[in-house]
Design a protein around this nucleic acid. Structure first.
Length: 548
RNA sequence: AGGGCUAUAGCCAAGCGGUAAGGCAUCGGAUUUUGAUUCCGUGAUUCGCAGGUUCGAAUCCUGCUAGCCCUGCCA
């Protein structure tokens, strides 16, 4: 019954059509990250799309690191990217690197030169730019363009041998300097970069440009549908040009879709890095970050992330998805999975004045009323308990269902209590509530004599275990205004509180997930939680129609 | 002398010439020992605008308008 209706999108239409026409024998996709940063929820959209599309058509998906720029790439990112994809639950068919194909790419470049379709450029970077023309004016052909094949071959060989300095020469495709598509105005396909590559070391000092390398990588791997984001649309003619020139038989097809944008979220690597560098976040895996590692630490599950990615769809129109949709899917996933327990985040002591001193009663409590198979647990009750500070008001507004002087509420799994007194300190803050309980109202007794409007959660004081709660709010506040995205950073994105949990939760392990009654879903932090003081990250609050 | 793309409810999005799916959000109501969940109800005579073709158009054609992307030896 795990079969889900997979909704339609334009890429599936294309694939279906291609399969019907017999253009391809099987569907091969790839997820091609550059190992220069951490994966985020936007990448998850692409991962889900690529892996599940191939799966649906009985095909396969490669993981391919696009490591054509040694200046930016690092092993650290390779490890984190693999970890994230595996955590999401996908198995790649083959693990490849663009750098695996450097020899073949070099061969293809030489072939281009031999056919008179590429030349070594003497012009400087600035000159190349000037010769390129503008969006509205055609470019000018470079003097280097008329070099002989022989000369180009020798020069390119010298580039490879390291006889030129970084940036001194480039290899360009010879296409059309007057093309209305700037990407076709003799694009650079190889540049000199005297730098050590994470994979090939110092073997090479020339590296292919992404635009030249990518179609070759796809062709070599037999990729059929090369799915990328919209900004590469103008690059497609060059992608097809490269495929045409190559002597590799495969004919991959590039298809572009719109990247994901989320409200209250920044998605670009540059901005995410800036948030870290300027201490608005504590790292790539800060639970407030939209990175896969951040969401994981926050407590998001792979199932929730994937369900979200499936539901937002795949199209070509620019979009801004409400982050509440993401939150919906994690609540949905955890609803049946997470044990319900009681935690008091901001404690206020309550004394049950008619309860005998020193006596503890152990009450039965369901672990998850929506999933009875999860069984029951025992929770203590006695003369002193903690409730939430926000669950008592001296002078409550209308429609306040919680505790206030002379009001009665239910304590979840326990008894009705009636407030008859409270104590304040010299600052006027309430420090203690005095209540009486009614033994007839015990939970499970079937008592129907009176009704109460409110049910509060609590933790018994003597057995309570101390815990830390990290309450996350949106890192980015769309309601604010400003020119720079940093103007939108929410200064209150993290609130840390000390409170109590039930004694039966003494042995929580990293990534254990709970629904704290009336609060929301929480995840045991994998790094800072410890035996003496568990630390819980709030994943998401429960929905609430109550506003004070 | 520019080129490429997009436009269906507050937000995503299906629809592919036969009379507007679904999800999120919102707002009602019922149930409720979570102000949760669940359930039921809630919105487009209309698909950016204007024309045209057709018995019939969100779907085809023409013209507009608005938004996004493109002038890295980044990807």
């Amino acid at each position: 019954m795990t079969e889900q209706e997979s909704s339609s999108n334009f890429i599936k239409h294309i694939v279906k059509e291609d399969m019907k026409n017999g253009r391809y024998d099987e569907v091969v996709t790839r997820f091609p990250p550059e190992p220069n940063g951490y994966l985020h929820i936007g990448h998850a959209k692409s991962i889900v799309l690529n892996f599940e599309l191939a799966e649906e058509f009985g095909g396969r998906t490669n993981l391919r690191f696009d490591d054509t720029n040694p200046l930016k790439e690092d092993e650290e990112f390779i490890a984190s990217i693999k970890e994230d994809i595996e955590w999401l639950g996908y198995e790649w068919s083959e693990l490849r690197f663009a750098s695996d194909y450097f020899d073949e790419m070099y061969r293809q470049a030489v072939r281009l030169i031999e056919q008179g379709k590429a030349y070594v450029e003497d012009l400087s970077q600035e000159e190349i730019r000037a010769y390129r023309g503008t969006l509205k004016e055609a470019g000018t052909e470079s003097p280097s363009r008329s070099r002989t094949v022989e000369e180009n071959l020798q020069l390119f060989e010298k580039m490879k041998l390291g006889e030129f300095a970084t940036g001194e020469k480039v290899l360009r495709a010879k296409i059309d300097m007057a093309s209305p598509n700037i990407n076709m105005r003799d694009p650079v396909i190889y540049r000199i970069q005297h730098a050590t590559h994470h994979n090939t070391g110092d073997t090479w000092c020339i590296y292919p440009m992404y635009t030249f390398a990518h179609p070759l990588e796809d062709a070599i791997e037999g990729v059929t549908h090369s799915i990328c984001t919209l900004e590469f649309e103008d690059q497609r003619p060059f992608y097809e040009w490269v495929i045409e020139q190559t002597d590799i038989a495969a004919e991959p097809k590039q298809i572009e879709f719109a990247r994901l944008n989320l409200t209250n979220t920044v998605m670009s690597k540059r901005k995410l890095k800036q948030l870290i560098d300027e201490d608005y976040a504590d790292g790539w895996d800060d639970p407030r970050m939209p990175t896969i590692s951040g969401l994981r630490r926050r407590g998001y599950t792979p199932e929730a992330i994937k369900a979200f990615c499936r539901e937002i769809g795949v199209a070509k129109s620019d979009n801004l998805v409400d982050v509440r949709m993401l939150e919906h899917f994690v609540r949905e996933d955890l609803k049946l999975k997470a044990p319900r327990t009681m935690a008091v985040l901001k404690p206020l002591k309550v004394v049950i004045t008619n309860w005998p001193e020193g006596e503890i009663e152990w009450l039965d409590a369901e672990i998850n009323p929506e999933n009875p198979e999860m069984g029951t647990r025992k929770i203590p009750f006695s003369r002193e308990i903690y409730i939430e500070q926000s669950d008592f008001m001296e002078d409550p507004p209308k429609k306040y269902f919680r505790l206030f002087p002379d009001n009665e509420v239910r304590l979840k799994h326990a008894y009705f209590i009636h407030c008859h007194d409270y104590v304040k300190d010299e600052n006027g803050d309430v420090t203690e509530i005095h209540c009486t309980y009614d033994p007839e109202t015990k939970s499970g007794s079937g008592f129907t004599g009176r009704k109460v409007k409110g049910t509060l959660h609590f933790v018994e004081a003597s057995q309570a275990k101390a815990a830390e709660f990290r309450l996350y709010n949106r890192l980015i506040d769309d309601e604010k205004s400003g020119d720079d995205f940093l103007d939108f950073v929410n200064p209150d994105s993290l609130e840390v509180t000390d409170g109590f949990i039930e004694p039966n939760m003494a042995d929580v392990k990293p990534h254990d997930k709970f629904q704290f009654f009336r609060h929301g879903y929480f995840n045991v932090d994998p790094y800072i939680s410890n035996k003496d003081k568990p630390v819980f990250n709030r994943i998401v609050e429960l929905k609430s129609s109550f506003k004070l």
